[in-house]
Design a protein around this nucleic acid. Sequence first.
DNA 1: GCACCAATAT
DNA 2: AATATTGGTG
Length: 317
Amino acid sequence: MREEDSNWFSRWEEELPSPEELMPLSQTLITPDLALAFDIRSPNNINNNTPTQPQAPPQSQSQPSPSNPLPASATTPPHPNSAEFASDSTELGSGAGGEEPARTLKRPRLVWTPQLHKRFVDAVAHLGIKNAVPKNIMQLMSVDGLTRENVASHLQKYRLYLKRMQGLSTGSGGAGGGGGAGGLAATADPATDHLFASSPVPPHFLHPGRPNSDFLPFVPVAALQHHHHQQQQQQMAAVAAAAAHPQLQQQFHRQVGHFGSPPSGQFEHPFLSRQSQPLHRMGTPVHNSVPGYAEDLESANGTGGRKVLTLFPTGDD
DNA sequence: GCACCAATAT
DNA sequence: AATATTGGTG
């Protein structure tokens, strides 16, 4: 199926994720050491949320990145939102006291915040079903620290979600269930898909049977990222979450699922993360409000033995 | 060998 | 339940 790409080129930029919807997010998956360096303190204090707009320490990412060709956008210094992470060495009983683990470290589970997911959806939407494959999505998202596997995993689930939606709304019949209604929010069943319901699903997603406007055979962005460091698997990921909009008041709530880690407060600095696109552009629209999200996530991390550290913005207005 | 996807594991 | 990891395949 070749689509007429005669003019896709001229339109690509229009279709690209540049607009307000995409940018307002600041993507930041920062490395553990960085996070630690910032302020990961005893779990005691984790709740010290600053009442006043917490402007993360301007410690932006100065990385020895050999190549960081990103054209800086003039007006927007990348706000390094404070995102943080936890890392830790799992159980490991044997020995190694904690000091060489750098090599065998596993990254904490990535937490898909509504923001991240939004970015994901937008990327997929702009890529078109055909090209929406993990690698492309990952590149378009330009979220630092995000791996292809992260995206692939999420994509898999997202596809299931879409299928489910299709089945319910198209069949008209009812499916017995419940109520669907569709189309819009009405996530009748709360427990069905928390995250997915948080971002609007582009219409054409639901009926792939009709090639609508899906083109963009290629992904222009991030083509510059070439490195042979594929081993970055050991890096840890962090979750980004804070969108800093001066206009709205936001609160950062940070949760640390810290668990075993060395109480000594020491850490090592394994790798660095790369930077991604310095997007800018503030937006107008903020139509995404999910009531009580933050609290919900709480249960996700927590306890148990998991080590998930996540920080998310309370998107409530 | 890489990337995708579906299945499976944690 | 949400992510990660693995296995089969193009």
